[in-house]
Simulated assay, not measured.
Amino acid sequence: MASELGLLKVLETFVACLIFVFINSPYVYHNRPALEWCVAVYALCFVLTALTILLSLGHCTNMLPIRFPSFLLGLALLSVLLYATALVLWPLYQFNEKYGVQPWQTRDVSCSDRNPYLVCIWDRQLAVTNLTAVNLLAYVGDLVYSAHLVFVKV
């Protein structure tokens, strides 16, 4: 896990954990299918990446029916596609007045209470948007590195 690819996997998992911290309240996405899709994307990619880390740490990569670099490439491609949909849907359904949400922080009543230990809903939504972009970039880097492992023979 000390390789570049391993560090990317750890970063992806860590960022997903941060996303889960900010979406820990169901009112942020409940009864909104597009946002529930985003939460499913975050969960699926997290589980698959954590499984990959566990396979690597347990030296069980040879138990897969395909070569491990090919598995990593497929996983990275799937994750990039899923995170790309989340990067479009999450901000669209969180910050667009057309979908019944408050696009500006000043209009969010939960932001008016300036409790230093409280993160208001709008700030949570913005944090998830930014973390989604960061994780998408990490998965793109993962895809490039995995493609290099599969297609470039050294």
Rank of each mutant, 00 (worst) to 15 (best):
N24I: 10
L75V: 02
L77G: 07
L5G: 11
Y117S: 06
Y27Q: 14
C38L: 00
A86R: 03
F20S: 00
A34W: 05
V154D: 11
D123S: 13
V154M: 08
L137S: 10
P33D: 00
S146N: 00
L136I: 03
I23V: 15
G74Y: 07
A138W: 00
N96R: 03
N130Y: 15
E4A: 09
L72R: 05
L75G: 09
A43D: 03
T61Q: 14
L92H: 06
G58E: 06
H30T: 08
V15W: 00
E12W: 01
C38M: 01
L136F: 11
L89C: 07
A138C: 03
L87I: 07
P116L: 04
L126W: 11
S56G: 12
V88R: 08
V119C: 06
W37I: 13
Q105D: 07
H30M: 07
W90Q: 03
A2C: 08
I121H: 11
L118K: 10
P65Q: 06
V39C: 15
W104G: 02
V134M: 13
W37Y: 15
L5W: 09
I66S: 04
Y117A: 07
A147R: 01
A133Y: 07
L149W: 05
F14G: 06
A2K: 13
V47G: 09
A138E: 00
V80A: 02
V144K: 01
A127C: 06
F71S: 12
A147F: 01
D108T: 03
A133V: 08
S25V: 14
A127P: 00
Q105P: 00
N62D: 14
V80H: 00
P26K: 13
L48W: 12
A133H: 05
N96P: 00
K153S: 12
V154A: 12
A127H: 04
I121R: 14
